[in-house]
């Protein structure tokens, strides 16, 4: 067992955890923040995507005790049903989901991916690694490819992200 303290969605939390506990299970089983989903527990599907210190990660691939002092944002930290984050609202408008299980991960990933583009971080499909990356469909698809949607809502998810990107850029 080990004690770990971090900030989740703006709130300081301290947990006494089995050191084998993943960040994902700390969120879901200990803090009851079940918006972050467990799809594979092996970093293969992206359903567990959260933002740690502003960067998206697969929370199943990292142990909770490694996050002492970190600032963690989950889907619950983006918005609520009564007060949706613009990306959440765009997913509803464009029907960017079906079963909803990958959705929190898609939304967290989408928010972080737009920030990455804004920060000038290139991707595998960026033609020029030193030029600012463009907000193109191919860039967005590449950056979102770690988030699987088996229902196949990709075309709609892209419309949702593009709308938010257009609005904020």
């Amino acid at each position: 067992m080990a004690k770990v303290s971090f900030v989740v969605n703006g709130e300081a939390r301290t947990l006494d955890l089995d050191t084998r506990t993943t960040l994902l299970d700390a969120l879901r089983e200990h803090l009851h923040l079940t918006g972050t989903k467990k799809g594979c527990d092996h970093g293969q599907c992206g359903a567990c995507t959260v933002m740690v210190d502003g960067r998206r990660i697969n929370s199943c691939l990292t142990l909770a005790v490694m996050h002492e002092g970190d600032d963690i944002t989950t889907i619950e930290g983006l918005g609520t049903p009564q007060k949706l984050h613009p990306m959440q609202a765009a997913f509803v408008k464009h029907d960017g989901y079906q079963c909803g299980y990958c959705t929190p991960g898609q939304i967290c990933s989408a928010v972080a991916a737009l920030d990455e583009i804004k920060a000038g971080i290139p991707s595998h499909v960026s033609a020029d690694l030193t030029a600012p990356p463009q907000l193109t469909a191919i860039e967005l698809r590449e950056r979102m490819s770690g988030n699987i949607c088996r229902c196949g809502a990709y075309s709609n998810i892209l419309d949702a992200i593009a709308e938010v990107a257009g609005r904020t850029s």
Binding site: K37, K38, I75, G79, L84, Q88, I107
Partner: peptide, 21 residues
């Protein structure tokens, strides 16, 4: 029509089986 369960799914508040604390 937008899905009536959409805001729950988009905010991670729709409860799936393993999450019923």
């Amino acid at each position: 029509t937008d899905r009536i369960d959409g805001p729950l799914k988009a905010t991670g508040t729709a409860p799936y089986a393993y999450e019923r604390h």
